[in-house]
């Protein structure tokens, strides 16, 4: 038991994107995520999904673009996850890939609706928000700071909110 416990990683409570790698990574090793992020940001700009207009088209059902992007991404992601599980593909460090089953709570409904409201108004999900700022829409730094404030307020009042 003792030995197993040593390998338990202390995660932040309820993190959707945790680091499950057992081996520590240096700051230099983290550069690979920076590079992946750069590629990701370029895709965001070039496919125009950072555009407020594309988000409006999606919610006004006047274009297929966003549905196509998200649908294809889910399909490719699902096939990848299936293959990783089926063939027990290991990470580059030889570790077993860790998946996280999610449990239902009311937050997914209430929080989901609130994010949806904000998504349509700002035209930004958290990812594209960073790309919007990078692409020169500097006023959106305000949106980012406000999103950070929103996250903080959620954390502060988490226990009094229905879950």
């Amino acid at each position: 038991m003792q030995e197993i416990e040593e390998f338990v990683i202390q995660h932040p409570l309820e993190c959707e994107a945790p680091n499950e790698q057992l081996k520590n990574e240096s700051l230099f090793a983290n550069l690979k995520y920076l590079i992946l992020g750069i590629l990701f940001g370029v895709v965001f700009v070039k496919s125009e999904i950072i555009s407020w207009f594309r988000i409006q088209e999606m919610f006004r059902l006047s274009a297929f673009h966003m549905y196509g992007v998200i649908g294809t991404a889910v399909l490719v992601g699902a096939i990848s996850v299936f293959l990783i599980k089926k063939f027990n593909v290991k990470t580059t460090e030889g570790e077993k890939v860790v998946f996280h089953p999610k449990t239902f709570n009311k937050g997914q409904i209430i929080g989901g609706l609130i994010f949806g409201f904000g998504w349509s108004i700002t035209g930004a999900c958290p990812g594209p928000l960073f790309a919007q700022i990078g692409s020169g829409f500097l006023a959106l730094i305000v949106t980012l700071l406000s999103a950070i404030a929103g996250t903080w307020v959620y954390g502060k009042f988490r226990d009094s909110l229905p879950h």
Partner: peptide, 13 residues
């Protein structure tokens, strides 16, 4: 809008 994005996404997990 930004506040709703930050608050909502964290609440939704």
């Amino acid at each position: 809008g930004g506040f709703m994005v930050g608050f909502g996404t964290r609440y939704a997990g």
